[in-house]
Simulated assay, not measured.
Amino acid sequence: MVTLVLLPGMDGTGRLFDDFRATLWPGAAAMVIRYPPAQALDYAALETLVLSQLPKDAPYVLLGESFSGPIAVAIAARGAPNCVGLILCCSFVRNPRPALAWLRPLLARAPLHLAPLGLLSRLLLGPRSSAAQHAAVAGAVAEVAPHVMRARMLSVLSLDATEPLGRVALPLLYLRAGRDRVVPRSAAALVARLNGRTQIVEIDGPHCLLQTFPATAVSAIYPFIRQIEAALETAGPA
């Protein structure tokens, strides 16, 4: 059986995967890797942290949600024998909003604890989301120290994971949100252009796709993983 390893969005808490995990198919194996809420780690340090927690003797598929996509790409590009597939959900391998790069000096000083969380939540979850979903996002963000959130945002602005993406020689599924107001369609197009193995599935939802449309996301992920499992069964022991 292949384990689905979930790497969280920018909050890093992993809390926002709860509904998605509850919707997985019977018998599914899944694990969530969480990031330190009070320690500002760059992409390289987070990659090291994730590597230390991955299954050591069983196959797994990495799912990188949004902010974590570049981490999943970097690990998949290593060619680790137990990593058998890659899923990117509403993610990117380069700053998805380059026109906002000028905000970097401002972001470095901005009091993030004063940010309008309600507006951010609506941007992530879309207009049809529930009060419980907004509360979950608010709770996850509240767990993360402002300086950590700032460091993660700054990491995205200077990101370039295009080279490792081209080295990924695994099945690659990209889940694109049709109503994503955070990551544009061009981010998925770039992934597909740089890696010909990419399969794009579009779901008519907002940026927090796994939180708002978990069952629809599972319906796209399940056949992807089953196909990988079937190939492993056919290949037999290494």
Rank of each mutant, 00 (worst) to 15 (best):
M1Y: 05
V2W: 10
V2I: 12
V5A: 12
L6S: 13
L6V: 11
L6K: 13
L7I: 11
G9P: 05
M10F: 08
G12L: 09
R15N: 15
R15A: 15
D18W: 02
P37H: 10
Q39L: 13
L41N: 10
D42F: 04
Y43I: 13
Y43F: 14
A45D: 14
L51G: 15
K56N: 11
D57Q: 14
A58F: 01
P59Q: 10
G64S: 15
F67A: 09
G69L: 04
P70K: 03
R78M: 13
R78F: 08
P81R: 12
G85C: 14
L86T: 11
L88H: 00
N95I: 00
W102P: 10
L103K: 09
P116N: 05
L119Y: 12
L120R: 02
L120C: 03
L120V: 14
S121G: 10
L125G: 05
L125D: 04
S129G: 08
S129K: 03
S130M: 02
Q133M: 12
Q133S: 08
E143D: 11
V144I: 15
M149F: 13
R150W: 08
R150I: 07
D160W: 06
E163A: 06
L170P: 14
Y174N: 00
R176E: 07
G178I: 06
R179P: 03
R179N: 13
P184G: 02
R185K: 11
V191R: 00
N195G: 02
G196F: 00
R197S: 02
T198A: 01
I200M: 02
V201L: 02
P206W: 07
R226S: 09
I228P: 07
I228Y: 06
A230H: 14
A235R: 14
A235S: 13
